[in-house]
Amino acid sequence: MTGKIARWVARDVLRSIWLGLYTFFFLIITLSFFTFFDDPSRVLLSLLNLVLMVVPLVSMIFVLTYLHNNRNFIVLTLTQPVSRRSVFWGYWWGLAIPLQLALLVGMGLPVAFHLLAHRALWLASVLQVVGAMLLTQIFLGLAIWLSFAHEDRLKALASGLLVWLSLTFLYDGLLLVVILLASAYPIEKFAVGLSFLNPLDLVRLLLLMQMDVAALMGFTAEVFKKFLGNAVGTLAAVTALLIWIAFPTWMAFRNFMKKDF
């Protein structure tokens, strides 16, 4: 039943004009970066900055809006002879698949074509796309959790934006303050620990560790590499990102199973 629901949700989402625009946006941007920058590491860094900003925001807002607009239908679905579990996972997959497809087409295709011609930085290029997909899944989970935790659409939207804002801007600011204030102490390990609290930072680390652009790496990436090494560091970052997908999804699922609709 999960599969049936997911297929119908995906069919509805795939016809959304907003999803089309999102795909088109990444397609144009990625293609033009590859056209205008000669240096592939410059393309990846520019793309990284864009991904870290746009992917979480779009995933969050898109999912929150979709679930809100379809709330009454979700309730109607729950009055049919299907389990809540199937409805939850049906919507989870039904929203995830189109959003991931949008990234694969918008960013994955141009990157793949580029890799056919130039092998430079292939692992970083792949991780770029994978990182964006992981972020999509994380913010999808967060959005589903927030959507069913709030009855009020505005509250859900406001809390979604707040989460995005905190992870995108506030966290960096706070980290900077902490590092400046504690500059007399050995806080490297502490800074590495902090990175695990922010999925955006983890994706950034994941990519920069592969690129060997020490000057661009920033403080945490350097420390990360120094303490954990390349392979272990990558593995640690990926594991942390998977936990970032699992935790909000699990919270959302728990809430959905016992919620009064």
Binding site: W8, V9, R11, R15, N69, N70, N72, F73, L76, T79
Partner: peptide, 14 residues
């Protein structure tokens, strides 16, 4: 059970 809600809503793009 067949149920008809007060506010009927279905996916907009289907």
């Amino acid at each position: 059970v067949g149920y008809m809600p007060q506010m009927v809503q279905f996916p907009e793009n289907l």
